[in-house]
Design a protein around this nucleic acid. Structure first.
Lengths: 113, 113
DNA sequence: TCTTGATACAACCGTATGGTTGTATCAATG
DNA sequence: CATTGATACAACCATACGGTTGTATCAAGA
């Protein structure tokens, strides 16, 4: 269920920061609001808020109002999108290996018959 | 065979650019030098050279002298490192689901016995 | 309704990034 | 060994990024 075309630029850029990766990790199985998340890091509330905004724009987290807090939840589907992107490289690599083996086989047939 | 501790910041940052991802893709199964790679993009030779330097620092490609060219090859192992990082999130997610099912089971035992 | 806890946003600052052009290095080959 | 094809690097510019402080919005609860 892919809602929007994945923007890999902002997706990988969002993952290229230790604090943001840590927020993604925490938001997988916790139900913390922005302030609670911020309390874990040695930077201002506003800085963490900006990190969360970056993650939100990349589709990596969503926010949901609960009482007067806004709880941050990781969107695992977007993580899978990134993973699938890397899997495509792996497939290309596999294809390369296969073509190489094919070449070796042809060489063997042609010269050692 | 992990030579250096992976720097996920520079690794994901390197992947957060369309041109660089395309270079990685090409360098998986081609044997192009820097100039040949550069010819595919509508930017200066130096710009592409810088992109390749970013990929090299992130461990995503290596350069090998062949004749008077320097051929760029993708380091698939580094791509796998990034993939494994994302897999860890998936595992956390699995663990969360498991704990939730566990809770539901306990609830069922305690109330419906 | 008025307060206030929680979040959002704007302005600013230093540094990093992605691009350019120009010059320097370096090794294969005539 | 001098040339030159191929790559590297330095300097510069505009814009983006990660952090700060300060102010504004917004909805829950006394």
């Amino acid at each position: 269920m892919q809602l929007v075309a994945p923007d890999f630029d902002s997706l990988f850029a969002a993952l290229a920061d230790r604090t943001r990766r840590d927020i993604v990790r925490r938001a997988i199985d916790s139900e913390e609001g922005v302030a609670e998340l911020a309390s874990h890091y040695r930077m201002s509330f506003a800085a963490v808020q900006k990190h969360i905004a970056v993650l939100e724009r990349a589709g990596l987290v969503t926010k949901h109002r609960i009482g007067r807090r806004k709880v941050v939840r990781t969107n695992v589907e977007t993580l899978r999108t990134a993973r699938r992107m890397l899997d495509q490289y792996e497939e290309l690599w596999r294809g390369r290996i296969d073509r190489m083996s094919e070449l070796v086989n042809e060489y063997t047939r042609e010269t050692h018959q």
